[in-house]
């Protein structure tokens, strides 16, 4: 079970969190300006790398805050400051 560093609560067990997928996906400001393909890309396409991934977590059973960490999808290692 991952020990996830919550910026407010400190390290906590993974079961207290909800996974939020890849970080840095910005919702387009003007969706109408996008083609259907571009919109589908925003909705569905993610990088899914083997290795370093910046990802969002939500401390759902704790302070209820969203935050971003960098984690290796291959080793599960979380970059800690």
């Amino acid at each position: 079970m991952l020990l996830i560093p919550c910026p407010f609560c400190g390290p906590r067990d993974e079961v207290e969190f909800r996974y939020g997928g890849e970080a840095g996906i910005v919702r387009p400001k003007d969706p109408d300006a996008l083609s259907d393909a571009e919109w589908a890309d925003y909705l569905y396409m993610r990088h899914n790398p083997k290795g370093r991934l910046e990802e969002r977590w939500f401390h759902v059973h704790g302070c209820r805050r969203w935050f971003t960490i960098a984690r290796s999808t291959a080793t599960h290692e979380i970059e800690r400051e």
């Binding site: 939020g20 969002r56 759902v60 969203w66």
Partner: peptide
């Protein structure tokens, strides 16, 4: 509630 928090906090 989680949905609200997600959009308010992250977007």
């Amino acid at each position: 509630l989680d949905w609200f928090e997600e959009w308010l906090q992250t977007e």
